[in-house]
Write a protein that binds this DNA or RNA. Structure first.
Lengths: 360, 360
DNA sequence: TTGTAAGCGTTATCAG
DNA sequence: CTGATAACGCTTACAA
């Protein structure tokens, strides 16, 4: 007597999750039909579709992620690697990125690299290993291995927060250098001659590097000697900003304006200025970069560079979705440059009249 | 002539990712052995292990996520659903959670519910569908369906940021009610009689509810009529905090102390106070809750309740890992209550002497 | 429009 | 200690 071909007797596991097969049985159709119903409803007849869908929610069926990934060779999961989650710099952009992905039925996996290219490489590997279909990366500085890996595995990726016109990579961002240069022009126009900048470490961080360069550009353009520009590098954090500021102002020749690489650093500088009894901007001017929330709650409000966070996030998501769907139609030509504009508040003012600090 | 059994000829796809089989062939062993090498190295001999590992990195092999998930029935991915990513309230705790998971080789999937139980239910479904092995949830308020789902699918989960001693669920947090009560005691001890609170909407948010209750508790204990306590509910955001504060102080009987449900609201209140020309704490006192970074950069520094964010995150992760490994050894007895203490800064001071606002 | 069946790349059970 | 081999649950040609 031939053994009856009864697949998956399901004995003794009354509570296990229902499978496609269960639904198929219930609806009296094949698993293929059920699958189609779920993935491409248009391809099945009205009547069977209703049958199937009824069975689906009767059984509370939900597809098995692993199985689907294995068979379809895609996870509908994208990854994003940002330098840090500890402050809000990337929060708004990431939020927008996520929202756009969600509209496309894609889940976001986020990890952070602590501003280290080596760590980022590890994260890229991890994300790929977890089946990320595409990746969002911040800035252009990373190990060659990272790029090779992305290339070899054919992982669609876009680079945000920075543009590098000369480089053949899809990116969406703004020109950090020009933005900072513009801001510096304003500072100089207010009469400041003695500037200093508090920057993030420039190694492995093209945004930080470009911003510093922007300051230099402006100085050069005004015929000031850029070698006299004091730059302190320190990781982004409120307290580091405060420390750096203190170092700067307790120096013999104190600057009249301190340009910070971002708002977090600037917030720290501002706080310390207050603690030291320095009035901003009467005694000293301070500027930020990013225009995140703290820029408007510190006192005085921070004059800073407004960065189109949400736009970048949304656009990056759209780009990435398109790239994934076109099966790696990576095209540097679809790169986008957005504008970063100055946001005036109160922390930047004219140079103080007292000549005590002038060294010119 | 029997056809030669040559699995996976791999013709024409020279760049596809190598599989276990490729590695096995290369190393001259079976796929089973390779798998063991990777998952339980102790169970294979020294020599073959070296062979296999050599082949592995020669080929740059990385396991396929979907296949592994399908076969092993686990993804090594945990999920976390937090009410919001828009401010830093949960950032530090989540960071710690993530770090601990990473130590255990687990990836974190984060999503946010916008403080809506319905949305949270959707997120729970989504995370489970994506194969999350375990879940971190915030607070106890959620739909019954959410709990049922978790139960039915046997998903290990812990609840953080809140404790509910009477409820049989594994949780790790602090007592929001008592913490707020303690803070209120201090406020009352400073002579304030006319209090107001700016809270997040209490529906679906047990933390917010408990904090308000704490204020009432303290008032009752001091024999003050809690009905005279003005409570404004508004979603967490700087600008909402500012608006609520303005409403409060432009009212006929202005409070001398405003207790805010969290630091974000308080920062808004503080900012608006300044804009309105009110000195804090000389004219009016303001308190926060959470002790996130902005609490120390606003001016004056915010007197607030320090919440053990990182501890919660780390502990939650440990708990969850243990639960997953013990195959759902969910035990409410392993719940942990941490301490939340008052962090004194400068925004809370004695009640102003001018009797203009006293209504007692 | 629907069904059949061949994978997808692992893990895990059992023999050897 | 190692090798066959049967799942795992789904997608997707290919046929009917």
């Amino acid at each position: 007597m031939p053994e009856q071909k009864l697949k998956r007797p399901r004995t003794g596991r009354p509570d296990a999750s229902p499978t496609l097969e269960d639904v198929a049985q219930r609806a009296g159709v094949s698993t293929a039909t059920v699958s189609r119903c779920l993935n491409d409803p248009a391809r099945v007849s009205e009547v069977t579709r209703t049958q199937v869908l009824k069975a689906v929610d009767l059984l509370g069926y939900a597809p098995n992620f692993g199985a689907r990934a294995l068979a379809a060779k895609r996870t509908d999961t994208f990854g994003a690697i940002i330098p840090t989650m500890e402050n809000a710099i990337f929060a708004r952009g990431l939020q927008a990125f996520q929202e756009e992905l969600e509209r496309n039925g894609i889940t976001l996996l986020v990890s952070s690299s602590s501003y280290s290219p080596e760590l980022e490489e590890k994260q890229i590997r991890a994300l790929i290993a977890r089946g990320a279909d595409a990746l969002l990366l911040i800035g252009h500085d990373r190990t060659q291995q990272s790029y090779d890996l992305l290339e070899r595995k054919r992982i669609p990726h876009v680079i945000a927060w920075s543009i590098a016109p000369d480089v053949p990579r899809t990116s969406i961002g703004f020109d950090n250098r020009t933005a900072m240069k513009t801001l510096t022009h304003e500072v100089l126009a207010l009469g400041h001659r003695h500037l200093a900048v508090i920057s993030a470490p420039r190694a492995g961080n093209d945004r930080a590097r470009d911003r510093c360069r922007g300051v230099v550009d402006a100085m050069v353009q005004h015929n000031f000697d850029p070698d006299r520009l004091r730059i302190i590098e320190t990781p982004y954090s409120i307290s580091n900003g405060a420390e750096a500021f203190q170092t700067l102002v307790t120096t013999a020749s104190r600057p009249t304006a301190v340009l910070c690489g971002n708002d977090v650093l600037a917030a720290g500088a501002l706080t310390r200025a207050r603690e030291l009894g320095l009035r901003v901007p009467e005694d000293i001017s301070i500027t930020g970069f990013d225009d995140i929330e703290i820029a408007q709650i510190v006192s005085p409000g921070l004059t800073t560079v407004h960065v189109p966070h949400r736009q970048m996030g949304t656009h990056a998501a759209k780009l990435l979705v398109a790239m994934r769907n076109n099966e790696y139609a990576d095209d540097p030509a679809s790169s986008v440059e957005l504008d970063a504009t100055i946001k005036w508040r109160d922390s930047l003012g004219p140079v103080p009249e007292t000549g005590a600090n002038t060294t010119d």
